[in-house]
Nucleic acid binder design. Structure first.
Length: 253
DNA sequence: AAGCACACCAACCGCGCAACA
DNA sequence: CTGTTGCGCGGTTGGTGTGCT
């Protein structure tokens, strides 16, 4: 059977999401749940296809999304399960709470594949290193047939670069239309404890305001919901605060 | 300073599958 | 059984930032 592409309707928007669209989608999903993705954009007043909305929500807007650099443990988990499962990114993502299949896929293609190649590289008889045949493919080489440059400072320098940029920009739409309101100095630096489930006493005391949010996202506790939302706010995205309030996530201020 | 190549990642595309009428 | 619909997955693309020459 032949199915028309889901985004073929004239008037449906494609490309990067704007902050306003993010806001509308988030508010709608928080209030009503996603239910039927196909019908959601129409009901929410978005000029997007349901597929696009679903992708945006799953890969970016979900409050339990974990951003920032991958820990060594996470990298090892990805490698381990990729060995077992192959390119089953969703299955691998299921082992890494807060990480999306898309993110894992990107990390694999941009970092871990190279890392494995490097590991599997063996010196030839002249003492030169060549990639093992089993892991060598065309994208190791540029058009002129030379090896792509490896990170210079350390094997994982690109992870640091990646996380820094991720924290600074988040997405094209947010960066362009929302994040510009915040100077880089105004955005607090975020350390590893940012994503920890360990809660401060502050979080615990405030968390009673977040049962609805915790329930909505099947987070373990209201404390966790509060922690995640606080993270967003700390990240300079104050407009999320309004979104959650409007969605009924806060009982009172 | 400008141009180019590369790295990164958000988003799109097409397909397969399951549920349902 | 067949066709339709919706969802989820994996592969791919395109835009943007960064670093090098």
């Amino acid at each position: 059977m032949v199915r028309a592409p889901c985004c073929d309707k004239v008037g449906l928007k494609k490309g990067p999401w704007t902050a306003q669209e993010d806001q509308i989608l988030t508010a709608y999903v928080l209030q009503h749940g996603h239910g039927n993705w196909r019908a959601l954009p129409k009901q929410a007043g978005l000029l997007r296809c349901g597929k696009s909305c679903r992708l945006r929500w799953i890969n970016y807007l979900r409050p339990d999304i974990k951003r920032g650099n991958f820990s060594r443990e996470e990298e090892d988990t990805i490698i381990e399960f990729h060995e077992k499962l192959g390119n089953k990114w969703s299955a691998i993502a299921a082992r890494l709470p807060g990480r999306t299949d898309n993110e894992i896929k990107n990390v694999w293609h941009t970092h871990l594949k190279k890392r494995l190649k490097k590991k599997s590289a063996t010196p030839d008889s002249k003492g030169h290193f060549t990639a093992a045949a089993s892991t060598c493919d065309s994208d190791s080489f540029n058009s002129s047939g030379k090896m792509s440059p490896e990170p210079s400072s350390s094997e994982f320098s690109s992870f640091t670069d990646s996380s820094t940029r991720t924290m600074e920009t988040h997405s094209t739409g947010v960066k362009n239309e929302q994040m510009e309101e915040y100077s880089p100095e105004s955005i607090p630096e975020i350390d590893e404890s940012f994503w920890s489930d360990e809660l401060s006493s502050d979080n615990s005391s405030m968390a009673s305001d977040f049962p609805a949010v915790a329930d909505e996202f099947q987070l373990q506790t209201p404390e966790l919901a509060y922690g995640q939302i606080s993270n967003m706010m700390d990240d300079g995205m104050e407009f999320w605060y309004d979104v959650f309030i409007r969605a009924g996530g806060l009982q009172e201020l």
